[in-house]
């Protein structure tokens, strides 16, 4: 099936992206802006929490407690969606430790992945993941990096129909397999896709993000900071004065606001080990957002043309 989306429709959505939030009253901590999951209308905050590397701390009790502190700050700042995978070492177990320590916050929106070649092993793997998280069911289950997606998706759709999970998705990262992802998005009734998008890696703007808008598929964005590399490159440069127009206090907020202001993006999932960074990230989802013109200016500036 050929996707039915147009450049005009995308540009219209971009132009309509408002300068959200009040300019005044900045002293009060704001709740993060939310965006609706197209398939259900349920609204989730524009910034979530990734756990790749950062939550893989093994049996280190002190590091687990530090991860729980990050979760506490995340929920206190209005965060909801946490993303992990069986591939991430001990991250699932550390999330479970943190959630238990925090008294199992009701706000958590649990997003995990199935990452196994054998389609028959997907349910046992998901059961293990669920036990590690300590949740009765996952809100979102995604096929990690499209691994054996032909075998896993029917299982996930059946589980969704049975009420054993709420949403189904697929993931990719580092800009890989976009062609496959496009074909799956066009042919399968997905609720979510997860992909890499940031100020530098923008290939998804060409086809995948417009297709997500057209097909009504929510978009999770991984690597919004290129795993920190983007922020390291930007760090020597001063934040432009005009960044204040969209309430950016740091390069991290600058980079995040660029990502989450794209109308197709439902939630970005930066990972961090620091409480101050998680607060900073959630704060990026409040107050004013860039419109299409500002987004173009941001990208040009980072590319050295601004």
């Amino acid at each position: 099936m050929k996707p039915n989306f147009t450049r005009r429709r995308l540009l219209g959505a971009l132009a309509a992206a408002p300068l959200l939030g009040p300019a005044a009253g900045l002293a009060q901590p704001l709740r993060p802006t939310t965006r609706a999951i197209p398939s259900s209308g349920e609204a989730i905050p524009l910034v979530g929490l990734g756990t790749w590397i950062t939550f893989n701390v093994g049996n280190d009790r002190a590091a687990r407690d530090a991860s729980a502190d990050v979760l506490r700050a995340f929920f206190a700042a209005g965060g909801r969606l946490i993303d992990s995978s069986p591939m991430y070492g001990s991250a699932q177990e550390v999330i479970g430790y943190g959630l238990a320590k925090l008294g199992r916050p009701a706000a958590v929106f649990s997003a995990d992945k199935v990452w196994i070649s054998d389609g028959d092993q997907s349910r046992p793997q998901m059961d293990t993941s669920r036990r590690l998280w300590g949740v009765p069911r996952f809100d979102l289950m995604q096929v990690h990096n499209l691994l054996s997606w032909e075998e896993h998706l029917p299982t996930l759709f059946a589980m969704k129909a049975a009420g054993q999970l709420r949403y189904v998705g697929i993931t990719t990262s580092h800009g890989r397999r976009h062609g496959d992802m496009e074909r799956i998005m066009a042919s399968q009734p997905l609720d979510f896709v997860q992909l890499t998008y940031n100020l530098v890696d923008r290939e998804v703007e060409q086809r995948l993000l417009p297709l997500a808008l057209e097909r009504g598929i929510a978009v999770l964005v991984n690597r919004p900071f290129q795993q920190g590399a983007l922020l390291e490159r930007l760090a020597p440069r001063p934040l432009p004065a005009w960044a204040a127009e969209i309430d950016c206090a740091s390069w991290a907020q600058f980079a995040l606001k660029f990502v989450i202001s794209h109308p197709a993006v439902t939630c970005a999932i930066p990972a961090t080990t620091r409480v101050d960074h998680v607060r900073e990230n959630l704060a990026a989802a409040g107050r004013r957002m860039p419109d299409a013109a500002m987004r173009a200016r941001m990208a040009s500036f980072v590319a050295g043309r601004g």
Binding site: T54, G58, N59, D60, A63, G89, T273
Partner: peptide, 15 residues
Amino acid sequence: LLLFSSRTYTRQFEL
């Protein structure tokens, strides 16, 4: 492909 940070790796030897 690296699953953990250098800090976490070093910490494992300490523990």
